[in-house]
């Protein structure tokens, strides 16, 4: 692979929280939603990001498009740092990076027809396009995502969730972006529709050569579409590897616990499966554990985990753990 399309280094998002009734000069409490995430994304590649609720998945995505302020670097292929760009300078890259949202209906303006919704980004980014050209592009895009031409004048509420998500995808792709960020694009959809939308996305990706960041909390959904997968926990990367390697041979105890929780659609295999229970809740991101953030819920945790934070190894299969290894290595916990 050649030059990365986007390389993110040490991305951090910190929210300052003022409690109600605090005086203005009191020091705010800090919520570290994303603390030091790095990865590279190559053209045409799909990076899956998984994690529990509150692990910082969506915040990470939003930081890349300046929807939340962040520190660190996110370098686009031409050398521009997306985090540091001014609003005006960012405008040039808006067309290159588009986003698909979780709730398809909420992401569409209820007062606009489908045609207007899909045409709107064209009005911003391709101002010299004539009315007829714009219309033909919109129609081509609708056709591409599987919407019927006679639906162009309908309003969003007349569509089902799956169709609405197709409209959202069409709006994102009509400006021919290089990177598509999908923030849980199928979580709000029925399972049968999920498959359709995912197939559509991977088909579009193949045909258009898109790079994709695909966020989900459903591991099986991510497995299907991703080339590489990143596991987030409390705003930190736990494991980052090729999809096959991560699902076939998970090294981090957190990844292993997540994978063991995925139901297998085969009763025999499901019964034989060893579930690694995760006790307790996600610790508060305002007061993260010292050392390894996962240690409070980890079966392998030892003293060193509380003292030093394990760095993500810089290999093709990166793990941030003091005691990485396959499931069996977790001494005595798994019955043979």
């Amino acid at each position: 692979m050649s030059q990365p399309l986007l390389s993110v280094e040490d991305l951090r998002v910190t929210f300052e929280l003022h409690r109600a009734g605090d005086l203005p000069w009191t020091r705010p409490r800090l919520l570290r939603a994303v603390s030091g995430v790095s990865f590279e994304l190559f053209p045409g590649e799909t990076l899956g990001i998984v994690g529990e609720s509150g692990s910082g998945k969506s915040t990470l995505a939003r930081a890349l498009v300046q929807m939340v302020p962040a520190t660190g670097r996110a370098v686009w292929q031409d050398g521009a740092d997306l985090i540091a760009l001014s609003r005006r300078a960012m405008l040039r890259y808006r067309a290159d990076i588009q986003m698909v949202f979780q709730d398809p209906l909420a992401s569409l303006d209820p007062r606009m027809t489908v045609g207007q919704i899909i045409a709107e980004p064209l009005r911003t980014h391709f101002r010299d396009l004539s009315e007829t050209e714009r219309k033909s592009r919109v129609k081509a895009m609708m056709d591409r995502v599987g919407l019927l031409p006679n639906q162009i004048n309908r309003y969003p509420h007349e569509f089902s969730g799956g169709q609405a998500q197709r409209i959202g995808i069409a709006r994102a792709l009509v400006v021919q972006p290089k990177l598509l960020i999908c923030d849980e694009p199928v979580s709000a959809l029925d399972v049968s529709i999920q498959a359709q939308v995912i197939n559509l996305l991977s088909e579009l990706q193949r045909d258009l050569g898109l790079a994709m960041i695909f966020i989900a909390h459903d591991l099986s959904v991510v497995k299907h579409i991703s080339d590489r997968v990143m596991v987030l926990y409390l705003g930190r990367t736990m494991e980052l590897a090729e999809s096959r390697a991560l699902y076939g041979d998970p090294q981090h105890p957190y990844t292993q616990a997540l994978l063991s929780a995925v139901p297998i659609p085969d009763p025999a295999a499901e019964r034989a499966k060893v579930v690694i229970p995760l006790e307790g809740d996600l610790p508060s991101p305002m007061n993260p554990p010292s050392g390894c953030v996962f240690r409070t819920r980890c079966a392998r945790a030892e003293d060193v985990c509380a003292e030093r934070r394990p760095e993500l190894t810089r290999a093709a299969h990166g793990v941030a753990c003091h005691f990485p290894g396959p499931v069996a290595a977790s001494a005595g916990r798994v019955p043979a």
């Binding site: 498009v65 929807m67 808006r94 990076i97 986003m99 709730d103 909420a106 992401s107 303006d109 911003t124």
Partner: peptide, 12 residues
């Protein structure tokens, strides 16, 4: 709401 975020992301 998301559609305002969407518009902002489109550079509106």
């Amino acid at each position: 709401s998301d559609f305002i975020s969407a518009a902002r992301l489109q550079g509106a």
